[in-house]
Design a protein around this nucleic acid. Structure first.
Lengths: 215, 215
DNA sequence: ATCAAAAACTAATAAGCGTTAGTTTTGAAA
DNA sequence: TTTCAAAACTAACGCTTATTAGTTTTTGAT
């Protein structure tokens, strides 16, 4: 008769949620059974119900906790007096650090939310949409303020958020780069771009790559 | 007694695969039952087995067809005489167009491959890894050739591929931007980056963000 | 019209699912 | 040591799953 051992500073429910999250990430929510979770912990499946209400509750807790963290950070950034591009960079860095430190939960809230039951699903989708709209609004102000190039803010939000969510595969594949340089490189690409920038900047004829080999 | 009506220029198996793909994308592979697929087509579930071998076979066909298309394109690009950044742009554009034109299949090959059975899973992961390595190699040459800024090619591959895969949520949410400007904007961000590029060549007389040292 | 193959059907399989009921064990407070 | 609740257990429920077997209908070529 094994026992559920709680994580340090956490409840047994937290311990279940953590183990479950790892499995949801690896196999997906629908393909993870309560028996899988129980086995990973070392108990029988029905024992879990002394601590949780349902399988769906685990998913709900994970998704909405992460959503809350991102929304809280966004609110702080919106109220700060930084330049708009600086706000965007701060948001990018926060997303990256969340992806590095809590990647299982973040991954689930990004990829498994579609399995939330009924009304929760609608709630989550609304929060998601609003978050992106507020991000696009910051970008738009940055464009108006000539801090950011003339791009479609909607596409920019899409690009930024999904680029960051790709860190998942960094996590999966053994972290070939350390976290700090991952962050710096990704920020550099997203904020500065791929193009080599000479000391004297060329006019923005961006799509034609006319520069000759070896300058 | 309804019938499976084949897509134009396609087999009945193709018709099943298409309907199934739409459901795999919407609900995920494990959460999509053969009965779901059958109902969407208008037949009973066992009838599908006159045309396909198993549910897994549908997933396999989709994943490996897409993988083949990307690998073929990559081979062409590798052999072309373009500049390296131009190769990268070509690959980015191909990925975007695939995401626009075949998004269901591409989405599945990106998000549902983990449900491939045993040996197929290993095969797929190997192909995926090799593809990324070849992409990173092009980036590295572009960096050596001073076409591309000094960044970690591994991180760049990650960023590019996942940024593009975010087009999925553009497809999901009613295509608020037309496909052409989606492509141009995303290429612009990924190839040039977010930073504002002034017409005037002096880099210091406008509002630019000096990058923060950490957060 | 005939006949065979293709493709639909119904019925049923064994296995797995989330969850509940009821019972036993555990561990700490009295 | 007794007591009681927390937390584990076993057994089982009703349902769904992918798939198979066996049968009937449809289709197209002769």
């Amino acid at each position: 008769m094994a026992k559920i051992v709680p994580a340090k500073n956490g409840s047994k429910k937290d311990a279940i949620t953590r183990k479950a999250s790892a499995l949801f990430m690896k196999k997906g929510f629908p393909a993870t059974s309560m028996r899988d979770i129980a086995e990973a912990i070392g108990v029988e499946a029905p024992s879990l119900y002394n601590h949780i209400e349902s399988k769906n509750e685990i998913l709900k807790d994970v998704c909405f906790r992460i959503a809350r963290l991102f929304t809280n950070h966004l609110r702080e950034v919106e109220l700060s007096p930084e330049l708009y591009l600086s706000k965007i960079e701060s948001i990018i860095r926060f997303h990256i650090s969340m992806m590095v430190e809590e990647y299982e939960s973040v991954y689930i809230s990004e990829h498994e939310w579609k399995h939330l039951p009924g009304p929760l699903l609608n709630d989550f989708k609304t929060r998601r949409r609003n978050y992106r709209l507020r991000l696009a609004a910051i970008l738009q102000k940055g464009i108006d303020n000539k801090e950011i190039g003339i791009i479609n803010p909607y596409v920019a939000v899409l690009t930024i958020l999904s680029a960051i969510s790709g860190i998942e595969s960094w996590q999966r594949s053994g972290k070939k780069v350390d976290a700090k340089s991952l962050e710096e490189n990704m920020v550099k690409i997203l904020v500065e771009g791929l193009r080599y920038q000479p000391e004297i900047k060329s006019p923005s004829n961006h799509l034609t790559l006319k520069r000759q080999k070896g300058l």
